[in-house]
């Protein structure tokens, strides 16, 4: 029994990371109807940036976030203004194919630079620290910290979207990009900010996951798919939906992994397909 509770807690906590991947996708889809196929590879890229920062400056990966998050935000802004903005229009093929091309470029670029070796970020004693809730139920400090950060990030994004000037601009551009320009909004800049924010969030999640799980240049697509599944499972109505989606995905994976490690990821995919079959609008909303 306690084993099951531990497993479910594990799943919930890792679900927070998936939710952060998802919220990054949901944000840019919401603002500019862009689905970035390279999302997962950018998540992995953030882990490699953290690897360089930790190795060259001798920092703990958690501290390296101070550098990695703004670096990825900047990369996001540049990518959007330099590349994705040129693809935005009525035709959905250009953004899709350009981001797919970018995905392949990042993957193979990382392969050239870092080889196909498995890596992990080492965070020191915090990795094994646990909090004891009862004799049988232990919760790792790091997973707990990750989950708390995920909740804060998602709550923060929700507040940013509905309570700040930039959130207002995001919604206005999303509603009607043509008219938004008449308010004095430079859509290209707004799109750039949305992508910067998206990548800043996934950089945080990408680094946190890289402390817990191995990564290599080819892991990007899996990260993308986890985020995507969390978005669809949760429904596109609010950022909190992605948290629920991420947690469900995490729990399903954790339970399947205790049955057979080979089933872990497959079970997550199947859960997603089940939701698609029986509740395509997601568990908590409508498909936009």
């Amino acid at each position: 029994m306690a084993d099951w509770i531990n497993t479910i807690i594990q799943g919930i906590l890792i679900g927070g990371l998936y939710a952060m991947f998802a919220v990054g996708l949901a944000l840019i889809f919401g603002v500019m109807k862009l689905v970035n196929i390279a999302h997962g590879d950018l998540i992995v890229l953030s882990a490699y940036v953290a690897l360089i920062v930790t190795q060259s400056l001798g920092l703990n990966p958690l501290v390296s976030l101070v550098f990695v998050v703004p670096i990825m935000g900047l990369i996001g802004y540049i990518l959007q203004r330099g590349l994705f903005n040129r693809t935005i229009g009525n035709d959905l093929l250009p953004p899709l194919l350009v981001s797919f091309g970018l995905s392949v470029i990042i993957q193979n670029g990382l392969l050239e630079l870092f080889s196909a070796d498995n890596r992990r970020l080492l965070a020191g004693p915090i990795e094994v620290a646990t909090i004891k809730f009862s004799d049988a139920i232990n919760v790792g400090v790091l997973p707990l910290l990750q989950f708390v950060l995920a909740v804060l990030v998602i709550g923060g994004l929700q507040a940013l979207m509905f309570r700040t000037a930039i959130g207002r601009s995001f919604r206005a551009v999303s509603d009607d990009p043509r008219i938004a320009q008449l308010m004095g909004l430079n859509n290209r800049h707004i799109f750039g900010l949305a992508m910067a924010l998206s990548l800043a969030v996934v950089a945080l999640a990408g680094v946190l996951l890289a402390i817990r799980a191995n990564f290599d240049p080819a892991t990007g697509p899996t990260r993308l798919i986890f985020g995507f599944e969390a978005v669809i499972i949760g429904g596109l109505s609010s950022f909190w939906g992605t948290l629920v989606g991420g947690v469900i995905l995490g729990v399903v994976q954790a339970i399947a992994a205790t049955i057979d490690p080979g089933l872990q990821i497959l079970a997550g995919h199947l859960a997603f397909l089940l939701v698609l079959a029986f509740r395509p609008q997601g568990l908590f909303g409508r498909v936009a």
Binding site: R168, R171, D175, L182
Partner: peptide, 26 residues
């Protein structure tokens, strides 16, 4: 130069006040 567009074209996901405030973005 400000335009009141044909068909009004308000931002549906913004409140009345937010629509006004965003008009003063500049």
């Amino acid at each position: 130069i400000a335009l009141v567009p044909e068909g009004r074209r308000l931002f549906p996901s913004l409140s009345v006040e937010e629509n006004l405030v965003i008009g003063g973005h500049m």
